[in-house]
Each structure stands twice: as C-alpha cells, then as structure tokens.
Design a protein around this nucleic acid. Structure first.
Length: 644
DNA sequence: AAGAAGGAGATTC
DNA sequence: GAATCTCCTTCTT
C-alpha cells in the first residue's frame, strides 16, 4: 500500500509501457481525469490493471491504497419508512420502498451521490436514484419505485450509497420483501397515495413524522433479530474496521455482541455462505491483519489484496476441528486459507451482494477472517463463545423460501439444539458445513467452466494452465506466465510451497494454498464418494438441476446456450455478469458482456473471444430457434425460445 | 461507441 | 457436417 506509485515493479512498468490499446489508453486518461491528474499514467495503469480495467474498481483501489486518510462520506441507515419487517405485499405490485438515512459524518456529502442497487433482487428496473447531498447529521428519506416479483416468497435486495466517482460508502441498506397473495402493503400504499403525497422524490427531506407505512417498532425488532442492525449493517462494521473506525460504531458493535443472530435458509444452500458476514468486534491485531499485515511473497500481498477482489467472500475450504467437519485432519487447508485470507485474495464473486467489489471499505480479508474464525472457534470468540456476534447468512438466490432461523442466543446461553449441542454449536456446525459446501460448489463451478476434473492430480498440462489462468483471474494474482508450463497435475501437486514460490515469487505461495484447497476437496470428495470426484453427479438439490444443461462431464462440447444457462443457474456466482430478467419466459440480460465473453473464451479455450463474437454465435441461434430477442428488444437482452 | 444483425469463409471436433 | 469462430459491413441506439 505504501509507496505504491514510487516503487512500481520494473516488470509492471514494462507491462505498462506495452499497453498500447486505445481502450486502455482511454481508461487511463479517464482515470487520470477523475483523480484530478494526481497520478501518472503508469500509476493509473497499475490500478486499472489490478482491477481488471474496471474504472470504478480502480478508483476504489486507488483511494484505498493511496489515500487512506481521504474523507469518505458516511451514511447510516436509520430505519425503514416503508416495507418494514413483517409486512407483505401482493405479487406484481408496484410499491415505493423508502429508507430513512443519515449523513453520519462530519462533512457534507459531495454532489452527485446516488443510491445504487448493489445486490440481491432488484424489484423492477430502477437501479439507482440520485440523492441530494446531505449536510452533516442531516436525515433524509430516499425512495425507490419498485415492483414486487410475480411469485410468492421472501426476497431481498441491497442498495448502497455511491459517490459520483464510484466510491461506495455507508451502510448497505436492504429491501426485505415478503410477497404473498393477499399481502396488504401494496394496497395500503395505493390507498395512502390518495391521501398523501407519494414519497417518490428520492431526496425528499423528512418533514415531521411523515411515515404512512412505517412500523418502527417492528423494524427495530427486526434489526435486532437479524437482517439489519440499527447502528449500521455488518458491512458497515466491517468497513469501519478496515477503513475508518468510528468510536461510536465500535461501541455499538460491542453492544451488539450480546446476541448471536444467524439466519439460515432451511434449504441450506451452501451458496448462501458466500455472503456470510458477521459483526464482530475485531481486535486490533485482527484488524491490522485485515490491513494486509501478512504479505506473502512481498509485493504479492499488495497486489493480491486488490480491493477489486474484496467485495466478495468465498471462504475457501477449511478443515475444522477434527471430528467436527468432514475434512482431512491433516489437511493443509488451514494453512492455505490462512494465507489466502491474509493475502486478501478472494474469488471474484460479484453477485453476492454489496458489490461492486472494488469499494475500499469492503475488506475481503475481513471476510476471510470471518470464515476463518467461524471454522476455528477455538481461535476466536465467534459464535460459540464470543461476547456476541451477529452472523448473517443470506437468503438463497432462489428466494421462494426464506424462513429465518433466528438463534437469538445471548452470550452464555446453553440452549441445546438437537443432538445435545448448544444452539451456538449447532449453528456453528450448520455454518461450517455450509462453508464446506460452498467451497465444493466453487470448485464444482470452476470444473464445469474450465472443463477440468476436480482432482488436480488428473490434470493435463493444459488443465493446469486453465486452472492457473482461472485462479489468477479469480484471486487477482499476478500472472505466472510460463512459470508452470509443461507441468501436469501430478507434478504440480508434488511441488512444495517453496517450489511454487520459486516459480512465481509474487503469488506462488497463494497459488499453492489454493491448490491445497483443491487437493483437500478432492480428498474429501473421494472419501465421501469414492471414485466420483468429477462432480458429474450433483448432490445438492440446486446444483445444475437442469441436467440438459450440464454437459461438462458428458464429453460433448458445450454449446453456448448451455453455457449461458449454466451461468444463469448460478446467479450466486455470475449474477453480476448475466442474470434472468424473467426466468419463466427465459429472458435474460448480459450485464457484463466482456466478462461473459471472457468466461466463454476460457471455457472454449478461445482467448480471443469477445462479445462481438459471442453475440454473433448467439445470433446464429435465432434461425435455429434456440435463442431470440425478446418482443421488446433491449440491448444485451435475449430470450430462450424454450425456457425451462 | 457499443450493440445488433447478418453474410461469409475458416476452424474445430 | 454441425457448431462455432472470426472478420466484416451496415444499421441502430
């Protein structure tokens, strides 16, 4: 972090000098302009490269690295004005969601800030509303016009304030929607609209006690129970730990530690785990660890800890206490995780939530520590014995069912869950097994996308290269180039960490750690289902349920339409690249054409793949009756002719 | 400028 | 030969 612009690696400088594409030049100039020309082009290129040439992410990275003391606006969620906890809404109903928020900082917000949809369900087409610059401590209501989904169930979406330069700040605020036939809220709102001016102006100032729909009591209770907390979301507490700790917040966090709050979907989709977060009063040493105290391979820590990878949390596989988890007791996973955690390398899970990933406040290392702590209760005071912590497990991607298991257990509770475990232990076990499941799913997904087996030992040199490319990309590792060329899986697995480091001084140890995770996962899989390591037979209920789509193990080359469905079936992992607009009708939208093309290129081993080519292939489906443009044609929106 | 549409030859399996 | 991949032109947003 320190001296980033001073001591740029000569190799990187060389790379920068070779960056000749117009696109990159444009990005560099735009980046430079947005930063007020504080940074030279090489420095701009560094941050852009680090963030996969995502301008917004690069800006976040820059502020994180270069300006730790920069004043970031503060925003605290005050309460839900409309759509409080326990209120239901009928399907397909327009409504206004209003939050009450406060500028909790000491400075007025900069002009041009907005509230942006960052994850979960969007409920309609609005994904952003401009918000007036609030003065310090000023409270305002922000409203968004939304429409409830057509199917009953629990839904949730996340929104967050964002500056004009793309810097996310403040609490992640939530829309929790219970859609029920006969739900009253929409009716209430509609009726109220006759009497009361609708709160549609996003920056309407609060006047008096105007709040036709609020149920503050319920909201408050709901906050304490689970999904939100009154003083700020879990993200906020994390962000404050990693960004700009506020004494008040710390105090609040400590106070909040008197409860454990675990929301688990009964379906226990392991995917949920990627968004496990918890409010924890991180000790100073933990916080400093989050701050990249541990630096594998010197510079790699800085590189790998790119904030671009921070907005996500995939735990990596971890062994637990022997006998408690299904992991090999002698697994090297802990080491691997520890390093991955400390390096701040996290898979680029852009869907889970308060993305985008590159906000400086979302310290991925913190998330990793979260998992790490969870899996090692003896090392931490998390659920089992902490003075308290709040853990949140997101509702599933398919939100038809989202009951909440609320383990509101005050510290020291000895409530017994079935099996004689304390409630905390029970929750911990649930979380642990979900973490494991999550990692297995990550690996499974990678296997399918890369068309490789799960067991690294079986990899051909080509597979190894794919895996390396994938891991570099996912974890933002410096490219290893030809360092592992010609190596097969066996050779790779036989290599020590030191050998990894020798071949790739900048990220070899992290690569080694991730390979360990794969090895252990394969080991585990073999133990549980001998001879079936290839994830062909999905065991989870939601994983690749559409068998016609799952061609990766059939030996047949995958079709583009199948690949697209694969991505769509994994909104948890790829929702930021491609997502359903209307699953029933098969209408989907490519949100990030470049990334989808890139994934397709990886899958087909076509490095030169781009959206132009991919879209041409999609268009070939028009006459075959596989994909078409929807009736109302929109850019990047397509429709499967025969939806599932 | 990016995306959409579609022609046409090349490539891969 | 099917299914892209690649390159291209033209048009639209």
């Amino acid at each position: 972090m320190e001296g980033m612009d001073v001591d740029l690696d000569p190799e990187l400088m060389q790379k920068f000098s070779c960056l000749g594409t117009t696109d990159k030049d444009v990005l560099i100039s735009e980046f430079q302009r947005l930063l007020g020309f504080q940074l030279n082009p090489a420095g701009c290129a560094f941050f852009l490269d680090m963030t996969n040439w995502n301008l917004q992410a690069a800006i976040g990275a820059y502020y994180d690295f270069e300006s730790p003391n920069i004043s970031v606006p503060s925003m605290s969620f005050v309460e839900d004005v409309t759509i409080g906890e326990g209120e239901s809404i009928p399907p397909d109903t327009q409504f206004i969601k209003t939050w009450r928020i406060q500028n909790s900082g000491a400075e007025a917000w900069p002009p041009g800030v907005c509230l942006k949809y960052v994850g979960g369900d969007q409920f309609g087409h609005v994904n952003m509303v401009m918000v007036r610059s609030l003065e310090p401590q000023e409270i305002a209501d922000v409203s968004v016009q939304m429409c409830s989904p057509s199917r009953a169930g629990m839904y949730q979406g996340q929104w967050r304030m964002c500056t004009a330069t793309g810097l996310y700040y403040g609490d992640v605020i939530w829309v929790i929607l219970s859609v029920e036939v006969g739900g009253l809220l929409g009716v209430t709102q509609q009726l109220s609209s006759f009497e009361t001016e609708f709160n549609t102006q996003p920056h309407r100032k609060v006047e008096g006690n105007f709040n036709p729909f609020a149920s503050p009591q319920k909201n408050r209770q709901s906050d304490e129970n689970n999904l939100k907390d009154p003083g700020g979301s879990e993200f906020d507490s994390i962000s404050k730990n990693t960004w700009a700790p506020a004494p008040d917040q710390t105090e609040q966090d400590e106070n909040r530690l008197s409860q454990n709050s675990v929301n688990l979907s009964p379906s226990s989709h392991a995917n949920n785990l990627s968004v496990v977060t918890y409010s924890k009063n991180l000790s100073e040493d933990q916080t400093s660890l989050c701050g990249q105290q541990w630096k594998p391979g010197g510079q790699s820590a800085d590189t790998a800890a790119s904030p671009s990878s921070m907005g996500s949390a995939s735990p990596g596989l971890s062994p637990g206490p022997p006998g408690r988890l299904l992991l090999p007791p002698d697994s090297a996973l802990r080491t691997g995780l520890e390093k991955a955690a400390a390096a701040g390398t996290g898979p680029e899970r852009r869907d889970w939530s308060p993305s985008p990933p590159a906000t400086p406040e979302q310290g991925l290392p913190t998330f990793y520590l979260s998992y790490f702590d969870m899996l090692y209760p003896e090392d931490s005071s998390w659920v089992a014995k902490g003075p308290g912590a709040s853990t949140r497990v997101e509702p599933p991607d398919e939100p038809e069912q989202c009951p909440v298991i609320d383990s509101q257990a005050p510290g020291g509770s000895l409530d017994l869950a079935p099996g004689g475990l304390t409630l905390e232990e029970h929750s911990l076990e649930q979380v642990q097994s979900m973490v494991v499941g999550e990692v297995l799913k990550d690996i499974e997904t990678a296997c399918k996308l890369l068309n490789i087996t799960a067991d690294p030992v079986d990899w051909s040199p080509g597979n190894v290269q794919k895996w390396l490319l994938w891991t570099e990309h996912q974890y933002r590792l410096p490219p290893v180039g030809k360092a592992f060329q010609e190596l097969g899986g066996k050779e790779l697995c036989a290599m020590s960490e030191e050998q990894f480091r020798q071949r790739s001084p900048l990220g070899g140890d992290v690569l080694h750690a991730h390979l360990d995770i794969w090895k252990s996962a394969a080991w585990m899989k073999e133990r549980t289902s001998p001879g079936a390591i290839h994830f062909c037979a999905s065991t989870s209920e939601e994983s690749w349920t559409d068998s016609e789509v799952d061609s990766s193990c059939s030996g047949q080359p995958i079709h583009l339409w199948q690949f697209l469905k694969e991505l769509l079936l994994k909104p948890h992992s790829y929702g930021r690249f491609i997502r359903w607009l209307n699953k029933e009708k098969g209408i989907f939208k490519i949100e990030d054409s470049a990334q989808v093309a890139r994934l397709w290129g990886i899958r087909k081993n076509r490095p030169a793949m781009n959206y132009d080519k991919l879209s041409r292939s999609i268009r070939q489906y028009y006459k075959k009756g596989i994909i078409r443009k929807p009736d109302i044609s929109q850019r990047l929106v397509y429709q499967f002719v025969h939806p599932i």
